[in-house]
Simulated scan of single mutants.
Amino acid sequence: METVRLGLVGIGKIARDQHLPAIAANPDFTLAATASRHGSVEGVTGYHDIAEMAAACPLDAVSLCTPPGGRYEQALTAIEAGLHVMLEKPPAATLSHVAALEAAARRANVTLFATWHSREAAGVAPARAWLSDKKINAVRIDWREDIRRWHPGQEWILAAGGFGVFDPGINALSIATQILPEELFVEHATMDVPAGRASPLAASIAMRCGEAPVRVEFDFLQTGPQTWSIEVDTDAGTLSLAMGGSVLTLPGEEQRTEPDREYARLYARFAELIATGQSDVDVRPMRLVSDAFLLAERRTTDSFSF
């Protein structure tokens, strides 16, 4: 496959922290242009928006790192220009938008890749393999982090369509849907929404995986050490994934820890999909978020400011 000429849309924190290093390290891609209202990359031609970039610069693909609210229009612009598209998580603001993009990509014969970076954490694949023949007795998911540390000043995340605490929480759900041998179903949820905001800062969700209860706790106000853990009780003991899936502990075995290569693996997968003419669009994590919002009891809490 020839080197893919890539446009990167949205030059914010996640693009700088993760996407730019992964692109630079992957010989299958050349960063040919960027599109951003506020950011730029030294030595790379920058444009105001994706339409201007697609019209002015020869590209093969784009990677979208913008908030989910405007993702549908941006992705559709790229698809209609004949470009392959990689979407940051969550892939769009609604499930209907994702379905429409998937249909548009099929019509245009281009690749659409809805990414879930946490599935590429080092412990996820071996956890899935170990759980494949186990009886699941109970699951506990705790995803607690500091919004001011990871999303400083990002007002959009608490607005309508911003997902709130489900923006990081969907990472946990992406892992759970990948490793558990049966489907997850939401039974009940509560959400704590700050006064004057549209999206929650905390949530508790009761789910089922087959006959096994699944308890989920999301919190966006945890300071100090951050918690990203999943524990699965089975007939063969308890499996533990910590640090967002990068640290795996199996019953009777030593803890396994490997370096973070999540985004490197995502771009390797994107290159593979383009080369083979395939798409990869799994909406199960987003469907669980949608179900939680539909079923949740919403509680108004004190106002919040960054």
Rank of each mutant, 00 (worst) to 15 (best):
A236D: 13
D302I: 08
S199Y: 08
A92F: 09
L95C: 01
R37Q: 09
P225R: 05
I205N: 02
V9G: 02
H117G: 13
S303H: 07
P27N: 08
V247N: 01
R144D: 00
S305M: 11
W156H: 12
L250V: 09
L76N: 10
G162L: 07
E258W: 09
P181M: 08
L6G: 03
M286P: 03
S303M: 11
D17Q: 15
G244Q: 02
V4R: 05
R144A: 11
I141E: 01
R119S: 00
I170D: 00
Q226G: 06
D302M: 09
L180D: 02
T45M: 02
T111V: 07
R215W: 00
T227L: 09
M1N: 00
A242H: 08
D167I: 12
P90V: 15
G123H: 05
E182T: 12
S96A: 15
A129K: 13
C57F: 02
A271I: 10
D282H: 10
R148G: 06
P251G: 07
V214N: 01
E297R: 13
T111C: 13
F218N: 04
A189I: 08
A275N: 08
W150P: 00
A105F: 11
Q255R: 15
N171A: 11
R106Q: 15
L250K: 09
G39W: 10
E253Y: 05
F113C: 02
L295E: 01
E145K: 09
P90L: 13
L20G: 03
D192M: 08
Q278V: 03
Q255P: 02
M191A: 12
L294T: 07
P251A: 11
P90F: 14
P213H: 04
H97M: 12
L221S: 03
P259K: 08
T300M: 03
G252Q: 13
L248I: 11
G12I: 10
Q255H: 00
Y263C: 04
G210A: 05
R256F: 13
L158R: 12
P285I: 08
W228P: 00
P152I: 09
D133T: 14
G224Q: 07
I170G: 00
V214R: 01
D17E: 14
R269P: 03
R37F: 10
A212R: 07
A15I: 05
L6D: 03
P251L: 14
A51E: 12
S132L: 07
L101D: 02
E297G: 00
M191D: 01
E253C: 13
P213K: 06
L294D: 07
A138G: 09
A93E: 14
S40R: 12
Y47D: 12
P181W: 04
A54D: 06
P27Y: 05
W116I: 05
G245S: 05
E73G: 14
E145V: 14
F29M: 04
M243Y: 05
G123D: 06
V139G: 02
V139W: 03
L294M: 03
L173Q: 03
L266V: 09
I230C: 11
P285S: 05
A296Q: 07
T227C: 10
M1Y: 00
G82E: 10
G12C: 13
A129N: 06
P152N: 04
I230W: 06
Q74N: 07
